[in-house]
Amino acid sequence: MKEAGVKAWLPSLLRLALVVLLIAFVTNPGWFEPLLKPLTESNAPAIYNQGSLLTLTLLHLRTVLIATVAATIVAVALAILVTRPAGVEFLPLSRSLVNIGQTFPPVAVLALAVPAVGFGEKPTLIALFLYGLLPIFENALTGLTTLPANVVEAARGAGMTGWQRLVKVELPLSAPIILGGIRLSVVISLATATIGSTVAARTLGEVIIAGLLSNNLAFVLQGGLIVAALAVLIYDGLSTIERYTARRMGQETA
């Protein structure tokens, strides 16, 4: 029993340690300078000095958040639309469009957005939004089309209107699957936002790219570590929420 207790607590402890480390790093990077110093050559700075890591982290997260919220709203709305009787004509097409869309590399979407809206945060947001739509739409579609038939039948039989069925039964039931889509979307967005700094968006990619350009491994490493830690933590957090909602309904978790 004791061993099981330690095993159960270990992941939470690791998570907590990672969060503390991450916060310490972005707020007080100076503390970690001695660790990174050996990676620099000819007395280059060991800590990124063209902007605060904290600001870049927050900007990075803000970009991802805005894009994900917009993508979630649009993707779920579209998935609802094509699963209602009025929009069912679009269902097969929307499926193939998602398949096609997924073959577009995020970098290509990012680069192609530049001619349309110019440099800066905008093309990054557009790329994040467009690319983030796909996994959410796909999962929402899966969720809404694979509801247990007898539950939907029971909802109809109880006299729920179409809207009531959607809000009270169909959406809550597909929530875990939709959350899974959001999780995938966020992870892709975190990565794409990093590349966004090549089109002049202010994100953590700036640190990595500055390191690559000036051959400063310390920059590359600190940028990479922060982004990686953010991605792992957010992925993990969203998985936990997903598992919780699924378990409450007695669903198997993938």
Binding site: A191, I209, G224, V227, V232
Partner: peptide, 9 residues
């Protein structure tokens, strides 16, 4: 989960 450019780095 680790973004590609970070992993490259």
């Amino acid at each position: 989960t680790i973004p590609s450019i970070a992993l490259f780095g």
